[in-house]
């Protein structure tokens, strides 16, 4: 059978296996969607300083970005590291075309998880944060390219990290803290305006900040521009940074994967 079709079917079966395990499903959702809902209920009521927009509405695009970011750079590496530890990756190597099928399958589960997390954040956002659908076709278009580019920016790198770490626990230990720190400093919960200069600089290196910025351009009115750095949302620069991460990952990941396979 064609490796792509087989990989798509593999991904779907994997996803059903995860969904049928209630504990795993809840763990997966509690992370991003759970944190989002709790934060909105506790601090979402206040307005972003100097703007008429609530913290809840401000945090929604950030968490949408974080759903993509954390699935690609935490969930995916942990799954791949677990697959390696259990021998699933080794099994794939024993099969003709097995690695292609395996990676296609992992891409499918990652995209499905991102879609599910993003949909749940938005579903919660409508009643809890008063977020509405993007008002113009132009903003819909921005939503699509920001999500696609944001996903491409993290998934190949995440796959490579997964094959480099020794196991899922090592992956969690290595990735959880940096991801949380990035969430704190990348304007997901608080506007970057509130951060000291060095921290702003660090945040702007990573794709999380730029994806959040792009998504705020989709969902938030211009009346919150005061909360952005330089009172503007440079979408061109967002596309450039996300695109650079995507290209870097797509070039680097196969190279890293081959090195691991050669061992």
């Amino acid at each position: 059978m064609n490796a792509t079709i087989l990989g798509l079917r593999r991904g779907w079966t994997e996803q059903l296996n995860i969904w049928s395990d209630r504990k795993e499903l809840l763990n997966g959702l509690a992370g991003t969607v759970g944190t989002y809902v709790v934060l909105i209920l506790f601090i979402g009521g206040n307005n972003v300083p100097g703007t008429p927009v609530s913290m809840a509405a401000f945090m929604t695009p950030g968490f949408l970005a974080f759903a993509v970011f954390s699935t690609g750079l935490m969930g995916l590496p942990m799954l791949i590291a677990a697959d390696r530890e259990e021998g699933t990756l080794m099994r794939a190597r024993t099969l003709p075309g097995g690695i292609r099928v395996y990676l296609t399958g992992r891409a499918v589960t990652t995209l499905l998880t991102i879609a599910l997390n993003a949909a749940l954040v938005l579903l919660a956002a409508v009643p809890l944060a008063g977020v509405a659908a993007p008002p113009t076709p132009g903003r819909w278009l921005t939503l699509v390219w920001v999500l696609v580019l944001g996903t491409l920016a993290v998934v190949p790198i995440g796959a490579a990290i997964g094959t480099l770490v020794s196991g899922p626990k090592a992956a969690a230990a290595m990735l959880a803290l940096p991801a949380m720190l990035l969430m704190l400093i990348s304007g997901v919960m608080f506007p970057l305006e509130m951060m000291p200069g060095v921290v702003r600089g660090i945040a702007q290196v990573f794709p999380l900040y730029w994806q959040g910025l792009g998504l705020r351009a989709v969902f938030l009115p211009d009346s919150v521009l005061a909360a952005e750095l330089g009172n503007s949302r440079p979408l061109g620069r967002a596309a450039a940074v996300l695109g650079a991460w995507a290209v870097g990952g797509i070039v680097l990941a196969p190279w890293l994967l081959r090195r691991v396979r050669g061992r």
Binding site: M1, L6, R10, T13, N17, E86, G87, M90, R91
Partner: peptide, 24 residues
């Protein structure tokens, strides 16, 4: 290939896994 002490695909059902591998 049957390697030493394999524990792969623990969540997969036996028949699903065999059918998936067969499809390669």
């Amino acid at each position: 290939v049957v390697m030493q002490s394999w524990r792969d695909h623990p969540r997969w059902r036996v028949r699903d896994l065999l059918a998936h591998v067969a499809a390669h």
